[in-house]
């Protein structure tokens, strides 16, 4: 099962490699991993999307907690949460496809942020599944380049993750 895990950790050199190293050393999956400093520059917030049985995910959260630089760990998928990912996608847009791509981008609430005679570059945010759906809808034949940030997540309502 897919899980989205939020990690609050010290913003120190090497902290990211400890997390990445843990996943490879213990043979856990990483679907995506994003990390950046928070409003408190001494802390980073990381979102890891992983998959595994309940036992494996329990071990992942325990092992993450065991890392000295990790302050807090929460499995967001245990409760209501919001998840967003940003994608920049460059597509071939010429002839009859040009109008169709524009329409498609509008339907998915994307924004065209760069234009040439034959290409569009589109910015799109949403859940991982929505971005997948856009790629599917455009079709691989027209896609020139895709950049995705990986998912970021936050709990709904009053629940917060703080040091």
């Amino acid at each position: 099962m897919r899980h989205i895990i939020s990690v609050l950790l010290e913003n120190e050199a090497g902290a990211l490699s400890r997390v990445a190293g843990l996943f490879s050393a213990r043979a856990y999956n990483i679907e995506s991993l994003t990390v950046a400093p928070t409003e408190d520059a001494s802390l980073s917030r990381m979102t890891v999307v992983t998959s595994g049985s309940d036992d494996v995910v329990e071990q992942i959260t325990k092992q993450l907690n065991k890392l000295i630089e990790v302050v807090k760990v929460v499995d967001l998928s245990e409760a209501a949460h919001i998840e967003r990912e940003l994608m920049l996608i460059k597509v071939r847009a010429s002839g009859k496809d040009r109008e169709e791509i524009k329409r498609m981008s509008d339907i998915f609430r994307g924004r065209i942020i760069d234009v040439t005679d034959s290409t569009y570059t589109i910015e799109l945010t949403g859940t991982c599944a929505k971005l997948d759906a856009f790629i599917e809808a455009v079709g691989k034949g027209l896609i020139l380049e895709t950049v995705r940030t990986g998912s970021s997540g936050i709990a709904r309502g009053e629940r917060v993750l703080r040091a």
């Binding site: 036992d55 329990e58 071990q59 325990k62 092992q63 907690n65 065991k66």
Partner: peptide, 11 residues
């Protein structure tokens, strides 16, 4: 003492 040792190999 180590939570990650618990239920690692045996429930």
């Amino acid at each position: 003492i180590d939570p990650s040792s618990i239920s690692k190999r045996v429930k």
